[in-house]
Design a protein around this nucleic acid. Structure first.
Lengths: 402, 402
DNA sequence: TGGATTTAATTTAGACCCTAAAATAAATAT
DNA sequence: ATATTTATTTTAGGGTCTAAATTAAATCCA
């Protein structure tokens, strides 16, 4: 007459406590209760279990406490050494590897220059295996158990099957990367879109919390997007992120890297801006189909300094972005649109034309209450997001299994 | 030492049982258990409560049973007389009122021709109050308790506040209709987008179930859309449906009813098709800015019969639709797109151009596994959906209160 | 210095809800 | 008539939560 715990409430509450600790840092049991709408008696019970499993630890009480009457709070925090995850970011000509501990903090980070477009599928897998093995030994040296690996890539991914469908960083398509790595390293491997990783981080920041429908647009070589509904990335049929960059501005318009014409990206992606600029401006030489950060900064400088040709190019990009945004607003009607990515460097030069385009495209009733703001770009954010997503996935998995 | 039932599982299970009965009709306790993943002991307990409240009834056992061994199933069903709801559909020049019983069946339906565009806000409210009062007395005559009213309208609605933001059927904007009617009739009044109503019905049909991300496009005078995620309408910041019709095909293009240019609707809405057609074809006279069903059928006939001018017009509309669809696929990546509404009459004449436009706009990786199919149009579907939504809302409310 | 007060964490007692198993019910098969 | 089968109800018990009571650990104040 026993029963399996078909009841999910303990499971949910445990996850909520862990998530709160990871997002907000050390907290007292009372506060964890209030924050998650459960009684502190329950938090006591949950934290006892987690302590016993070594996943959390009590903070020594000598920490500077907010003075006040009453028994002082005993803060609990995630035990960093309880586990670790590795996040690998694959972007054009670069590979970043980051090790994160169980509290979600970055433990180690390294960058490698790689001619990604020249890789074959086998090359890529070999490279990933080699580099991951290296950082894994680092992690294992400090007695941390590797519980998951995350591959964060630009492009279209089928996250459920772990297949990379298409990425601007690679010259091949449809590679089932995750299953191969799972087998090699014996732990779950997630394949995630880079925009989803960043959006997951941004959504937890106080400034952007409280917006149930959030769109994060990533400007860069290409243009990506993530749609978060109540903080969780919306994955369509593909299991991929939304492809804002390939929504249309002008049927039959400019040539896009995807092979089609008229995509927003073909006007506002780095390569598109640089391509146009080279026609009329003196700019640093180099692979202008894949402009470097230095090249893009040179171009952006020109626009900021008032060069009319450069300004015209950014304005046209802003207009394309604005029309894309108009479609996003009409179809998705988000509460907040965040514009970020390395391409925000040129946002100031695009913003006015973008806003004009939105006003030209949509009646105010359809623009609704949506706010559009830009947000500074941090190159480590992708991996931090990947780490957070992976930890959350493995926590959830562990609880459902046991 | 008592506790409020903060636990939601009974609540959820009760709603699930009611929903299953409403969608699938009479069912046995065992099957309700299997269908909803709960034990039949729990179903027994839940159905005992519902029987006691008079919300369900056991079917007399003399119904033709599927022969077989063992104790026969006792089917239970929702008690139609337990409650009723009224759904009012407001569309251009027409008002439909439907009474639905607790099982979700249509009890009564009536149509009224009304020059909706000539109404003032006060006129509209007076008209609604009068007509609703009429059908309410019908319902009350059969001893049914009116538990909710649904207003289903074309256009943009803020469903949380009950404000009609903008509708093509009306010449004014921003009317807080629901609060007024709530006060007048003393029951919850929901304001819903018509596409959401229809989509809610379609999503429960076996043929379209099992698609977690479903887009329903409504062709008609204007073009509406509803996005369902796991069967529930996605409401953005506005609380409104997605406005596919006003996504852009051609910046600076054809004049749209919304006041802007280049919207998909300005090419593929009834008024847009008829406007173009009148330039080159002999067609029935009448208010060609608001073509009647007869006028649209005449135009559609011409295209079906091979008239090249008519065919060209539909092809251009299909192309606009295709580009809009491309953006929908890029941004939302639904599993299934259903095209319906009165405008499906012309779907055959648009389909090829539409498909070509999608292929022209998007690489196959971004089209992904999405299927696009049309679906026959039934003018009562909106109200049936409104009734289902309202019953579900009032059931849920009742349970959370008690 | 020592109670009074305040706040945090834990323990206790009880309610709710679910499930598996047992019991009961109601049919068909032989 | 009895065995078998399937549905429903009853029973017993476990899990989880919460409110209240208790315990713990500090400050306040005389």
């Amino acid at each position: 007459m026993a029963s399996q715990p078909h009841d999910s409430s303990r499971h949910d509450n445990t996850l909520a406590v862990i998530r709160t600790l990871r997002e907000q840092g050390p907290a007292a049991r009372v506060d964890l209760g209030i924050l998650n709408g459960i009684s502190s008696a329950t938090v006591t019970s949950i934290s006892a279990e987690l302590l016993q499993q070594g996943l959390i630890a009590e903070l020594p009480p000598d920490t500077p406490r907010p003075s006040g009457r009453g028994r002082p709070k005993t803060l609990i925090q995630l035990a960093p050494e309880a586990a670790c995850v590795i996040c690998v970011k694959l972007s054009i000509n670069e590979l970043q590897l980051v090790v994160g501990d169980y509290s979600g903090q970055m433990q180690h980070s390294e960058h490698h220059s790689v001619a990604t477009l020249a890789l074959t599928p086998a090359d890529l897998v070999a490279l990933l295996e080699e580099k991951i093995a290296e950082v894994r030994s680092l992690a294992l040296a400090s007695h941390r158990r590797l519980v998951g690996i995350c591959l964060a890539v630009q492009g279209v991914v089928a996250s459920h099957s772990g297949t990379l469908i298409w990425s601007p960083a690679l010259s091949f398509r449809n590679a089932a990367l995750a299953p191969l790595l799972t087998e090699r390293f014996g732990c779950p491997v997630l394949l995630e879109n880079d925009a989803n990783c960043i959006a997951s981080v941004l959504a937890t920041q106080p400034a952007y919390a409280g917006y149930p429908n959030l769109a994060v647009i990533m400007l860069g070589y290409g243009i990506g997007m993530s749609l978060l509904i109540d903080g969780v990335p919306f994955l369509g049929a593909n299991g991929s992120a939304a492809e804002f960059g390939h929504s249309k501005y002008q049927p039959g318009g400019a040539q896009c890297a995807c092979g089609k014409r008229g995509c927003v990206e073909a006007y506002a992606g780095d390569y598109a801006l640089y391509r146009k600029a080279r026609e009329v401006l003196e700019l640093p030489a180099g692979d202008s189909a894949h402009p470097s950060e230095a090249q893009m900064q040179a171009l952006t400088q020109l626009a900021m300094q008032g060069n009319p040709d450069a300004q015209r190019i950014f304005a046209e990009a802003g207009r394309a972005l604005g029309y894309g945004m108009a479609n996003l607003l009409a179809l998705f009607n988000p509460d907040l649109v965040l514009v970020t990515g390395s391409g925000v460097r040129g946002y100031a030069a695009m913003q006015e034309a973008m806003q004009d385009a939105i006003d030209e495209a949509l009646v105010s009733e359809l623009i609704g209450p949506t706010r559009i703001v830009s947000c500074p770009w941090d190159r480590d954010m992708t991996c931090l997001g990947g780490i957070a997503i992976t930890l959350q996935a493995t926590d959830s998995q562990r609880l459902t299994e046991s």
